[in-house]
Design a protein around this nucleic acid. Structure first.
Lengths: 267, 267
DNA sequence: CGAGAAATACTCACTATGAGAGGAACTGGC
DNA sequence: GCCAGTTCCTCTCATAGTGAGTATTTCTCG
């Protein structure tokens, strides 16, 4: 009995035709800006529009493996590289989100360091890093955030419901920086505290008190691990050489680094 | 062109046969114990085993609507009832998690108050509230929790990978109690601070300092709203009447109520 | 060399937390 | 009706964590 026969014999009416895809929100920081990896669609629907990299889940592939494969195909990064973080974000399955048929998409979220090659995809699709600012995203679904003034037509840039997926991914990323050391996935193996602070400032889109940030990250156990080395030169605009650190072994930050007061967005 | 023809004409090989189901982790508190709603399977595979309530997503149904329907079918609770919380948990799609065919399951998590009727399902399936303690669950997937000594065979009680889904749901529930007011979804419309404390103690499986808890919940803006009324009688074992509160309008707790030190589980 | 900038280290006021103590109100049992 | 025990609620105190500001020193750039 083939799989198809089994399927048909079991109870065909109970298995409405559904396709399952994996989409990946790949975030990185380039030029002090939070960027997302997008690919331009070469076919209908939404032909010519930007979309999140993704595709159908293969028959013998785990969901996470599919996401890893998509990530590797588009970035050239072997996702086994330890410096990449990949986690499941959420699933999206509104009945008509894809006009062709019922498609349920399992979205993943990835943090990668600034890559040398600018998204050298292995296939023919055009892909690019796009700054998330200026995409005019809707609110994250479950996130009780302050309403964002949405520029008309701005989200039309993204295909399907990918603007929503991206918004949810951004909210997850912002939140994850609070209580996990994942900010270190955006920088190199060795980094300065100022580099790390700029990651936080970029993702949170807020400025932080340098002194307090310094004190804080050094006081959280397991967050930073000293290399004993400093940078070769001071900053490009002056200032002393800074010490280099590695990510420590903490998987949760305690106490957490909380975002600057979101008092307004709590209700 | 029917949907099937479209599907076939498009690129059949690109759509491996996959079924999408919705499973729901429904939690409630009964007799000072955290309970989960389970149904007994009436057919192979895992015939006779307990499983999470769930089923196939219908063709024109949103994922959340499917979860709501499953919840309503099994509990009799019209999930529109404001006192129920329902959120997406995660998706599970390992290639052979269901021996019949590839099944991707989108899991949801629900918090319901102690229901009058003991899970009066509308269909013939046997269903029951089962205390989660003693199920011998595996660790939550992404949760860096302390390794739980797993009793051999204990998790064989649950069908498919539902023990894992339940474990992930529990970890999510424990975490959500920290920074959201969702503990109030486990109690009635009006509740005492002690009732709320017992929710936290039950879900976190830890005892809390009554005085500090009292001060804390009252100091978090928007968490508690006074009714100006007290209970008719004191507690069954003595003590004064306690004041009754309603849930306030906060959607996030700030500052959060953190679980008693998990220092060990941070690395 | 001087101006400006950044890394790091302080201080200080304020808030939040954990632990404990104690008064007052109530229960059930005798 | 009284007592012992329980619970609600409040308060204190020591300690930890945070936001804001300042100071010192070491750099780069022009």
């Amino acid at each position: 009995m083939t799989e198809e026969e089994f399927l048909a014999a079991y109870d065909p009416s109970a298995f409405p035709p559904v396709a399952v895809t994996v989409d990946v929100v790949v975030l990185t920081i380039r030029d002090e800006q939070l960027n997302v990896l997008l690919v331009r669609r070469g076919e209908a629907p939404y032909e010519g529009r930007w979309a999140l990299p993704g595709g159908f889940v293969r028959p013998d592939e785990d969901l996470a493996a599919g996401a890893q494969r998509e990530l590797a195909e588009e970035t050239g990064v072997g996702a086994r590289l330890r410096r990449v973080h990949l986690e499941q974000l959420a699933s999206y399955g509104a009945p008509r989100r894809d006009p062709r048929m019922r498609v349920v998409s399992v979205a993943y979220l990835a943090f990668v360091p600034d890559l040398p090659e600018p998204a050298a995809g292995t296939d023919a699709r055009e892909s690019a890093w796009v700054p998330v600012a200026g995409l005019g995203l809707p609110d994250a679904a479950g996130a009780p955030g302050r309403p964002v003034r949405q520029r008309p037509g701005a989200t039309r840039g993204l295909a399907f419901d990918h603007a929503q997926i991206l918004a949810d991914g951004l909210e997850r990323a912002r939140s994850k920086l609070e209580y996990t050391p994942l900010a270190t996935r955006f920088v190199g193996e060795e980094f300065t505290i100022a580099e790390l602070r700029r990651v936080y400032e970029t993702v949170w889109d807020d400025s932080l008190h340098a002194g307090n940030f310094h004190r804080k990250v050094l006081s959280v156990p397991g967050f930073m691990e000293s290399t004993g080395v400093t940078t070769d030169r001071g900053g490009s605009r002056g200032g002393p050489r800074s010490r280099l650190y590695r990510a420590g072994d903490a998987r949760l930050l305690h106490p957490a680094l909380l975002r600057p007061s979101r008092e307004d967005s709590i209700r």
